[in-house]
Write a protein that binds this DNA or RNA. Structure first.
Lengths: 299, 299
DNA sequence: TACACTGCATCGAAAAAATCGATATATATA
DNA sequence: TATATATATCGATTTTTTCGATGCAGTGTA
């Protein structure tokens, strides 16, 4: 059991030490002189020694009081640091924010967003992490990241999901393989549909878009990234579905045709998710809104 | 107005942060869980932000909580430093002690005392200052020194006087001037009585010892120190009164006779004085006693 | 799916403390 | 000696802290 001085006692102590007067100190501390006297007395009792020598009209520091001053100052200073740190959090979207993003979004969305976000929230430091949806959901649930950016639908119990945008899929195929202006899901049947490797949600979402089981998955060609997948298509190994952001903001090489689907085009929802209990939820909503607006401008 | 966290709140906070559990922390802090919860809640309200994220069964630090930990630790550490400093004062006669001593005592008593005191109170650091009684009384009264060692009687309002020893005066005269075994005050009449310069209490005490006004003070020879005074005597300029410690522990050169007075010999009292309000008064009594004992042994 | 369990939040009552105003006490000052 | 100034102390009151009991929300289990 280890008794410590009260913050208030230390404040009283320093005030008396500064003014060398109990009454002046009481005034400064906005308490009556009796209260302050009692506070100092309590501290002195706790310490077992006097901090001040009261000699009639004059107050004098004892040697203990003398040596205690620097420690007392530091004690209050660290206390003030804590409140200051808290105050600085009052401006939303400042400080660090750990964000996880899936690989089929990160390379396309980030170049559009980061410069603008940087401008809009100069005191926000985004710590980014690229993982597949499954890993992200786990990281977020256990608190390793604050919020995750991924595609819905995805199973994530206990996380709050907020949709940010809905994007159509496009058909990507070798230039010489397709000449119509639009495509329909049915056109895909019998085609060699290339997919990302197991674990990417885009694989599931693409499959879900097809009412059929694709003819041959050609597992040998399962790509680890969209960029690779596009390479496969370019070299004639098959066709694939690309999300809109990959089409608009990714590098589509020569020799590939991007064909829109007839309405209703297949699509995926993109949005954020975070723990329902996260104390910064309001900031997350704010950030989501800000990004939504940015994307609207970016077209 | 600048509100600071309470010491207790910080203790609670650190305990929860350590155990990542309110209940465990409550146990460690010897309070109920509800008390601890309320304490944390109050701190969070004060800061305007949560320190912990409560997610069902698990508790997680917020970013504010994370960054607040080091500050919180330091805050408590400085508080503990103060109590530790106070505790270390519990051993009496440790630390610094500022002592003033008059010039007619210092050179004779200190060599006898310092080595022994050093041995007896190894953690006591004596800061010595040699001044005349008047200066010492002022220094002590205004708090520049803790205690003073001087000769009584001396006017010192508001200071507590504690006599330590009583010492006889001896007659010091040129060897060829005196051949009796003892002296009496009356023998001094008509002699050239040499005295210390104005301001030394020994001057007054010596004069007081004489029931008469000495024949010629020969102000030209007023000495600034006893050692000088003895030189004067040695060279035949007159006689003087020496306190016992100067006789026993000083250097009495050849050619000087030291003659005791017939009973009742004139004498002076030597002792300490300090402010009545001084918080270390008990230590001073202790030190006085210790020195008394040392002198008894030194004989 | 229902049910008990675990852990934090909340509530009202009781205990502890902090604070105040008034007054006592001590010390300088006139 | 009277007066002014400064701290200590006292009793009453308000405020805060603490507790025990209970509520509530996730978590694990039958």
């Amino acid at each position: 059991m280890d008794y410590l001085p009260t913050t208030k006692q230390i404040e009283y102590f320093l005030s008396v030490a500064e003014h060398m007067s109990f009454s002046k100190a009481a005034e400064e501390c906005h308490v009556t002189q009796s209260t302050l006297s009692a506070g100092i007395a309590a501290l002195e009792t706790l310490l077992g020694h006097n901090l001040f020598e009261r000699a009639g009209r004059t107050v004098r520091l004892t040697s203990l009081g003398e040596t205690a001053i620097p420690e007392a100052r530091k004690m209050l200073e660290h206390g003030r640091n804590i409140t200051a740190m808290a105050r600085s959090k009052n401006q939303p979207l400042t400080g660090t924010l750990k964000m996880g993003i899936i690989p089929t979004i990160a390379p396309y969305l980030l170049p559009q967003l980061l410069p603008n976000l940087q401008k809009q929230f100069p005191n926000l430091s985004l710590q980014l992490q690229e993982e597949q949806s499954g890993a992200l959901v786990e990281l977020c649930t256990k608190g390793a990241v604050d919020m995750i950016l991924l595609a819905f639908p995805y199973e994530m119990p206990n996380l709050r999901q907020v949709e940010m945008l809905s994007e159509k899929f496009f058909l990507a195929c070798p230039q010489d393989r397709w000449h119509k202006k639009t495509a329909s899901i049915d056109d895909l049947e019998g085609q060699e549909l290339l997919l990302l490797e197991e674990g990417h949600c885009l694989r599931e979402h693409a499959l879900a878009a097809c009412s059929f089981r694709p003819k041959a998955k050609k597992d040998a060609f399962n790509a680890t990234s969209l960029a690779t997948l596009i390479q496969f298509v370019q070299h004639g190994y098959g066709i694939t579905l690309l999300p809109e952001m990959a089409v608009n903001w990714g590098n589509i090489p020569k020799g590939i045709n991007i064909v829109p689907f007839k309405s209703p085009a297949p699509q995926r929802q993109v949005g954020f998710a975070w723990r329902k209990s996260h104390p910064r939820e309001k900031e997350f909503m704010l950030l989501t809104k800000a990004i939504k607006d940015l994307l609207k401008k970016a077209g």
